[in-house]
Design a binder for these strands. Structure first.
Length: 915
RNA sequence: GGGCGAUUAGCUCAGUUGGUCAGAGCGCCUCGUUUACACCGAGGAGGUCGGGGGUUCGAGCCCCUCAUCGCCCACCA
């Protein structure tokens, strides 16, 4: 944007201020963050006289770039933190990074692959050293990005999930749950990713609807293998995965299915493998699906596994860990699943066992991380027993100790928690928290919270021959402890005692189960308290077409590039004000640009106020009507914004503020104030004082949203850079107290609203008249100040005081502006346009522009409007039900409307008759 | 198969206790350089708040129902 730069330079030497003509976020944003940090403003003191307010930042994955979701997260959190800090709380915003489990291991492996080294070449120990090296490179990047976003987090308390503190918390929790019997090891069917070579929890599985086939196979009864297929001599089974038949150990039917009842207990011969398998009865079989008979592969299907357990069926594992078939698959050993499927089908068909094929869509599990098709396999894994932990966590939300915003997500939470299954926590990776489980040569097993280096002997028998379980924990295990592991737990540190439980956990709704739910039960189980009192869930950021942003789709808008282009303030405000809690939002660059325009507007408003000089006395009098009005409006805004923030309606709060600045403060107040500012009298000094006071407060209200800009402007407003007029404890807007309302002035609001209305009506009438006029007159009217006669009725005195303002705002010729109590016929000549604003009447003798016919028509239309309004309100007020049941204010408002419409109609009629 | 959300001006979206709630920004049309701002100002056009039914003195907001789109959960072999 070279243009802007040139402009800025040109006007940089403007005499009144050192402020450039246009706002340049680059220069400003770089200025403040380091200073804030150096001053220690981000680091709260543990102060018993203050209330603590704590937000623990959801730790971004150390390996990635920050995306728009992070930008939104940090915007919301920083807004809350800055607001509370200004409101007098000891506000702690604790930052950190997550080691990111599988994703973390992958980036390291990817880097190694560049040198054609695999992790197995290095060995575990060396690999982990490498991993740490990489983390030390990645972490500063995340820190830098968070700084650019303006996050006022306390870097002195920064944590990494793999640091010794959080790691000790992990071991302590593990041991506690292990000793309590809530962590166990067992053979279960789990999701296996053949590419990542690890187990995954159900949450890490993405089910994708795939168009496949449903194959019907014939399994002959033992002894009738040679006869042709038929119900009498065998059974028909339907399957979407024919290759798994190699591992079948039974066929199951529903016991009440008349078709197959006779077959129960008999034995069929499994084709290809020529193995006898039983036909069993199980309620779990759906009579209405397929043939009503299911082949049972306990080794590779979750439902089959369960049925297998009930009937003590053997489990045949067909797969190697890389997803190829193993020796149990007979002739197909070594093949991929896809290839084996084709082979099996071909052979079954050739041998007459394939009865039917029909298209069938069903869902196939994929790895959330890499997209590979997952295989259910039976494996010895570690689990957390969920039911005992879930119950109190449900209760905590139900009884309100934890509030979820928006509320509707509570239902989703209940449903998940109440149907929860045990959580598989072991992962076959190297990067992560290694299970603190030890085995000894005497067959003992124990968990230890001690550092692995310090574990020297079996806790049960004292044997020195011990070894640690090779698996690591699901990355979400450590995440679940984050609200307290970051504060020093299990030690009762001062931080933990003061800042825990935390206040708000803010994150995307997509990780409600992954993370939020787990923090709640871990917090309750381990600290005896809820980890936070409020969960604020924001929506997802999508591209302008509503698609999820992703690298593969190529539709990512990078937050940092937006910060470069439009400023951090613009980005965070755009993200927050264009959305409502829990709802997804489509983001386009245009929205960020709009907010940047707002920043420029605010910059210029401040530039104007600063150029008026300092107020001479803090309580200058007398105050003009616009002064009283803006103070009143401001007071309402302070209350409104504060309330909206209390209600977590950040977007609304931001919008209210933008409206106030743009419309009330700039468009009306500053323009009206120019009247008083022109003079050198006391009123002018009072106006300077009011303009500054209201702007100062408004900057404070906006500071949580736009921290950089407001700091810059606030400093300018307070004499910077030529002098520092600020007391030590208020050197930064960050430390300035959150504003209090000054006072609502109903009278001023009413009176100035009348001024506004009059100005609007005159502008409007002029524009309309000019629009329909011939070219010649249009030209003549350009820039011309027009004549106006105002009959003010009881408001005459007020209007006389505001005459100059009205004249300037409505572009009237002040010499020819006449304000009287009531207009004489001469003062409203026929060739004029008449406006009726309440009891006020305005006549505009627009020479040459007023066409009598048109004017009559216009007045007619106005009169009809008024009549309609009268009719509507009269009818409403005649309704006894309404008068009796509606709240009094509403009834009164309707009465007022009626009265003013009647007055208006009378005036219009009078004028019409005169014409 | 359950559950949730969205459906408001051409576009993107606000609208939390039912009574100035019919709004904002952008876009479009007309004007305009006045003690800050053209990254601006003034004015205007544009919507029966997805359809239907109901509750109520009164509904964009509550209830029922339908439609379209999207998301989440679920052991549909």
């Amino acid at each position: 944007m070279p243009e802007t730069t040139i402009k800025s330079e040109k006007s940089a030497n403007s005499p009144e201020t050192s402020m450039a003509k246009a706002y340049n976020h680059e220069a400003v944003e770089q200025r403040w963050y380091d200073w804030w940090e150096k001053q220690g403003y981000f680091t709260p003191e543990i102060d018993p006289r203050k209330e603590p307010y704590t937000i623990i930042m959801p730790p971004p994955n150390v390996t990635g770039e920050l995306h728009m979701g992070h930008a939104l997260t940090n915007a919301v959190e920083d807004i809350l933190i800055r607001w509370k800090r200004m409101s007098g709380y000891a506000a702690l915003y604790l930052p950190g990074e997550d080691h990111a489990g599988i994703a973390g291991q992958f980036v390291v492996e990817r880097e190694l692959a560049k040198e054609e080294v695999s992790r197995h070449d290095l060995g575990r120990e060396q690999f982990l050293l490498k991993a740490w090296e990489w983390m030390d490179l990645y972490r500063p990047r995340i820190r830098y990005q968070l700084r650019r976003l303006g996050a006022s987090c306390d870097w002195s308390r920064e944590r990494f999930t793999m640091n010794e503190g959080p790691a000790r918390a992990v071991r302590t929790v593990f041991k506690h749950l292990y000793d309590k019997g809530l962590i166990y090891k067992g053979e279960r069917i789990v999701n296996w990713c053949p590419r990542c070579m690890t187990t995954l929890s159900d949450l890490e599985v993405e089910n994708e609807e795939v168009q496949g086939n449903l194959w019907t196979l014939f399994y002959p009864l033992m002894g009738s293998e040679q006869s042709s297929p038929g119900a009498g001599n065998g059974i028909l089974v339907a399957t979407t995965r024919p290759e798994t038949m190699l591992g079948d150990t039974a066929v199951a039917v529903n016991p009440s299915d008349p078709r197959w009842q006779g077959h129960i207990g008999k034995t069929v011969i499994l084709p290809i493998m020529n193995r006898p398998i039983p036909i069993v009865a199980d309620e779990a079989v759906d009579i209405n699906f397929g043939t009503g008979a299911v082949k049972i592969t306990p080794g590779h299907d979750p439902l089959d596994f369960e049925i297998g357990q009930h009937h003590s069926l053997p489990i045949i594992n067909l797969l190697n860990l890389n997803g190829t078939l193993n020796g149990n698959a007979g002739p197909y050993a070594g093949q991929t699943v896809e290839r084996a499927r084709k082979g099996v089908i071909a052979r079954l068909e050739a041998e007459g066992y394939l009865i039917n094929v029909e298209p069938h869509s069903h869902s196939v599990p994929h790895c959330e991380r890499c997209g590979t098709v997952l295989e259910p396999i039976v494996s010895d894994q570690w689990f957390v027993r969920m039911q005992p932990l879930a119950a109190p966590a449900v209760e905590a939300v139900r009884d309100g100790r934890v509030r979820i915003v928006p509320e509707r997500f509570a239902k989703v939470y209940y449903h998940w928690m109440e149907n929860i299954r045990d959580w598989p926590i072991s992962r076959q990776l190297w990067w992560g928290h290694r299970l603190p489980v030890w085995y000894c040569d005497n067959g003992h097993r124990f968990a230890s919270a001690a550092e692995p280096e310090a574990v020297a002997e079996c806790e049960i028998c004292g044997s020195k021959k011990i070894w640690q379980d090779p698996d690591v924990l699901d990355t979400w295990f450590s995440s679940g402890l984050w609200p307290f592991s970051t504060l020093g737990w299990p030690d009762k540190t001062p931080d933990y005692e003061y800042f825990y439980p935390t206040d708000v956990m803010e994150t995307g709704y997509d990780i409600l189960f992954f993370w939020v739910a787990r923090m709640i039960f871990q917090g309750l189980e381990n600290t005896g308290e809820v980890p936070f009192h409020t969960v604020y869930l924001h929506g997802l950021i999508r591209d302008d077409k509503g698609r999820k942003m992703s690298k593969t789709a190529g539709n990512v808008i990078d937050p940092l590039s937006m910060v470069d282009k439009y400023g951090s303030d613009a980005l965070r405000t755009a993200l927050v004000t264009n959305s409502s809690p829990g709802n997804d939002q489509k983001l386009s660059e245009q929205k960020i640009e709009q907010t940047a325009h707002f920043a420029n507007k605010l910059w210029n408003a401040t530039r104007f106020v600063v150029s008026q000089g300092q107020a001479s006395s803090p309580q200058a009098q007398p105050r003009t009507l616009p002064d009283r009005w803006i103070v009143s409006r401001y007071s309402r805004i302070v209350g409104q914004v504060t309330q909206l923030l209390e209600d977590y309606q950040l977007g609304e709060a931001g919008k209210v503020l933008q409206d106030f600045v743009w419309s009330d403060y700039c468009d009306w107040y500053i323009e009206a104030a120019k009247t008083a500012l022109r003079g050198d009298d006391e009123a002018g000094k009072a106006t300077v004082e009011v303009a500054r006071t209201v702007l100062d407060g408004t900057l404070r209200l906006l500071h949580p949203f736009m921290p950089f800009l407001t700091e810059e402007l606030w400093q300018h407003l307070n004499g910077w850079p030529s002098e520092r007029a600020l007391p030590n404890d208020e050197q930064s807007i960050m430390l300035a107290p959150w504003p209090e309302p000054i006072g609502v002035d109903e009278e001023a609001e009413r009176d100035f609203n009348l001024v506004i209305e009059i100005v609007r009506e005159i502008r409007n009438a002029r524009a309309e008249a000019v629009r329909d006029a011939p070219e010649q007159i249009k030209k003549e009217m350009t820039g011309r100040r027009i004549e106006a006669h105002i009959g003010g009725g009881k408001r005459t005195a007020i209007l006389k005081v505001e005459a100059e303002t009205i004249a300037r705002l409505a572009r009237l010729d002040q010499e020819k502006l006449l304000i009287v109590e009531s207009l004489s016929p001469a003062q409203r000549p026929d060739k004029s346009t008449t406006l009726v604003i309440g009891e006020v009447e305005v006549a505009l003798p627009l020479a040459g522009l007023v066409d009598l016919k048109a004017e009559r028509k216009r007045l007619q239309a106005e009169a009809e409007n008024a009549s309609a309004e009268i009719e509507r309100t009269e009818k409403l007020l005649a309704n006894e039900q309404f008068v009796a049941r509606a709240v009094p204010q509403v009834v009164q408002r309707e009465r007022d409307k009626l009265a003013s419409a009647q007055e208006r109609l009378a005036k219009l009629k009078e004028r019409l008759e005169a014409l």
